[in-house]
Design a binder for these strands. Structure first.
Lengths: 204, 204
DNA sequence: TCTATAATCGACATCACGTCGACTTTTATT
DNA sequence: AATAAAAGTCGACGTGATGTCGATTATAGA
């Protein structure tokens, strides 16, 4: 078992010392990424922040983006959970939508730095690109199913196919969050996104 | 005048030899960016493609992203021009909208590589970030004005403020183009974007 | 022809990356 | 408590890309 997994490398038991260091790396990364871009920050900084040497860093992660990927792992489950009431429902259930979007805005306010990096990934083999593809993809699949349910119940109608509509709705939400979160009051942003989403899905 | 401008460096008169080389760099860059990411490609390649040495490259451009910025400069005017009939009009003028979006999709089909890079820029000081901010910003300002015109004429109504609606509409269009152009037939993509835009702006 | 400026290049210094092998610490085992 | 295996650490090395400098050669205009 020489080839390291995507995020970690050695270590069998899941306990102290090494784990503390891993957390330290994660913490300094989360901290640094609040204000700086992933590309701009160096492995040396991450290592130094965790109190180890640069080469020791590679014992824990395969590279910078592996660290970010690990950080995002946590956010993924939060995001999915927060959206469930809305995604699993049917029809223009505004309260559920509003709750889902509220949570998203909140998450972007606290972890916008991380999420922004993930949205603008680069190489296709990069851990981040993979993360983004799977997480966003999951959301789109669930939204597609929701739209199909609505259509079957006569609550909305095409032309945009359910899949296309789901893509566009997701694109609108994510990109708007990336561009606008932090530049305007959260409450307004939530309101605007709720209205826009309902218009896209139901023509208001 | 030692400090070079954003895109070029030396040279007073605007004529041959140096200009041919500049074009050669631009051409190879446009070519390479069709398939590869800006980050992945090296200044050496750009220089080699233009038949000059790496250090000579710096006589023409300040770096990789300055080249991309120059390339995008051209696209900006195209984009603005193609959208004018729609942006300068009023009301749910579907043919004008369809024409504008058609052109955008076409542009993304031929220059998607370039545009994708521009959308996912990084550092705030980077020429690309500047380009994106100004170009997208211009479009949003014009769309905002259009929405205000519509509202004044009673053709549509809030809650989303004209500015917010413009941001969200633009986010939806750009992100959808970035993610979906090339993965589905152009005609369908145009249709879907037209419908989605009309829903966002007029509630269909 | 002569001269200022355009254009070119090689050499250098820097910086970040990833790997390797040797070394030290921790942990489990009898 | 002794010891062996695994976890963890580090410095040194090689590599590849970046940007700058000074010296040198081509080019165009008076």
């Amino acid at each position: 078992m020489t080839a390291p997994a995507t995020t970690r490398s050695g270590r069998r038991r899941a306990l102290s010392k090494g784990d503390r260091r891993e957390h330290a790396i994660l913490d300094t990364a989360r901290d640094l990424l609040q204000t700086r871009s992933l590309a701009s920050l160096t492995i040396d900084e991450l290592a130094a922040g965790a109190g180890i040497s640069r080469s020791s860093f590679y014992f824990y992660f395969d590279g910078k983006s592996a660290v970010l990927a690990a950080l995002l792992e946590d956010l993924a489950s939060e995001l999915a959970a927060e959206n469930s009431p809305w995604l699993d429902g049917t029809g223009p259930d505004e309260p559920a939508l509003r709750a889902a979007i509220s949570h998203s805005v909140e998450l972007w306010r606290t972890s916008g730095g991380l999420l922004r990096q993930a949205l603008s990934s680069g190489a296709p083999e990069d851990p981040l690109t993979v993360w983004r593809a799977t997480v966003v993809g999951r959301g789109i699949r669930r939204l597609t199913a929701r739209i199909e349910r609505d259509r079957a119940a006569g609550l909305s109608a095409g032309p945009p196919s359910p899949e296309s509509l789901a893509w566009m709705t997701s694109a609108m939400r994510n990109q708007t969050l990336a561009e606008r979160a932090g530049t305007m009051p959260d409450a307004e942003l939530v309101d605007d996104l709720v209205h826009a989403t309902l218009r896209l899905l139901y023509g208001h």
